[in-house]
Each structure stands twice: as C-alpha cells, then as structure tokens.
Computed example of a mutant assay.
Amino acid sequence: MEQPKNHALFNDELYAKLDEFIDGLPTKEGALISVLHNAQDIFGYLPAEVQNHVAAKLGIPASKVYGVVTFYSFFTMKPKGRFKFNVCTGTACFVRGAEKVLDELKKELGIDVGETSEDSMFSLDALRCVGACGLAPVVSVNGKVYGRVTPENISDIVEEQMAESHIVERSV
C-alpha cells in the first residue's frame, strides 16, 4: 500500500526511520504495540498523522491504532516536555505521601498533571503503579527512578536532572 506523502508535522526522514523499523519486522501481524513504541520514540508522541501512517503501513484500520493508543497509558497523543516527570499514585505511594510530592512538583514546575510547560522543558503525569512499592513514594524522570521522595527532595531532583543535561538556567 502506497504511503501518503503529505506529512505536515514531521519531516520525511523521521517517517523513513519508522518505515525501516516496520519493513524489518519478520511479520506485521501482532506488531502494532511494538511499532507504536518505536514511533513514539522517533516522534516523541503519537498525533493522528503518525497513527494514520502506522495504520496504512500495517494495513489495519486507523480506528484500531487509535484504540490501542488511547487504551494504554504509556502512549501519548500530546507532545511531552524534555523532562518527563511521573509520580506514582498507587496505594503504597499514596499512603506514603505521593499527593504532597505531586503538589510540590506542580508548584516547582508551574504545571498541572497532564500538562507540558510552555517552553516544552517539563511535563508532569501521575501513574497508577510503577511496581516499586518498597521505594514509595516514587518519582521517575525520563526513566530514572527516585525512591522515598519527599516534597523537600523535589527541588534537588529538578536541579539534578537539569545539571545532568547541562542546562544552566530555568525559565520557570
């Protein structure tokens, strides 16, 4: 099936990278979640344009792709910030103060849950459980997990992340 070439959001190089991944699959059957993970890694998120491309490339209805994207919480249809903060709000984390940690992160980053800062530096999400209950409450940033976090730790975590990325000054 010929792919549409009217990509408005992203350049053809990114689509070529995704196509290379899809074309290298031993079979396209049952590969949707794997393809979506790869697409999200390439594009940063999964807008309708990318979902339609995946559907056409896999020969499946766009509605099926959309259904999977909206069902699983690890997929996003909105752009995320450079620093993706996630706070576990599962039972163990909640009981040990995740709500206060989340409130402090909202203040520190200047955004609410589900939002991305205007400068695209930060995004904030709350997750149901990350499977690290013994470390509750847990915050992860771009995959790095911080355990036994308190509201007093938040500023240090933000600064550490920025220092690791060699960012000297925050605009928030």
Rank of each mutant, 00 (worst) to 15 (best):
E164M: 10
E99A: 08
D125S: 13
K78N: 04
V95T: 02
M162S: 07
F122E: 06
N38A: 04
L46G: 08
I157F: 12
V158F: 07
S120Q: 06
V130P: 00
Y15I: 13
K17T: 15
Y66F: 14
L109Y: 08
K84G: 01
K64W: 03
L135T: 08
I42F: 07
Y72V: 00
T70C: 04
E160Q: 13
E2K: 06
I60Y: 11
F85D: 02
E108A: 14
A55D: 03
D12G: 07
F122S: 07
N6C: 00
I22M: 15
V139G: 05
K17E: 15
E169P: 04
F21W: 09
C93S: 03
A98M: 05
G81K: 09
G134E: 05
F75G: 08
K28D: 08
K57L: 07
E29L: 07
V138P: 01
T76F: 03
K64V: 10
L46Y: 07
S123H: 11
G90V: 03
Y146V: 04
A98R: 09
G81W: 05
Q3K: 02
R82Q: 14
G67Q: 14
S171M: 09
V68Y: 09
G134W: 02
T76R: 10
G97R: 09
V68L: 12
T91M: 05
T116W: 08
L32A: 01
S165F: 13
I167R: 04
N153I: 01
H7K: 01
K5S: 01
P151W: 10
R82L: 13
L109N: 08
L135A: 10
K78F: 01
K100D: 13
E99R: 14
G67M: 09
K28Q: 10
L46S: 05
A48T: 13
K80N: 02
V113P: 05
Y15V: 11
S140N: 00
V101E: 08
E169H: 08
A132I: 01
R170W: 11
E108D: 04
P4V: 06
R128C: 00
T27K: 13
P61C: 07
R148H: 13
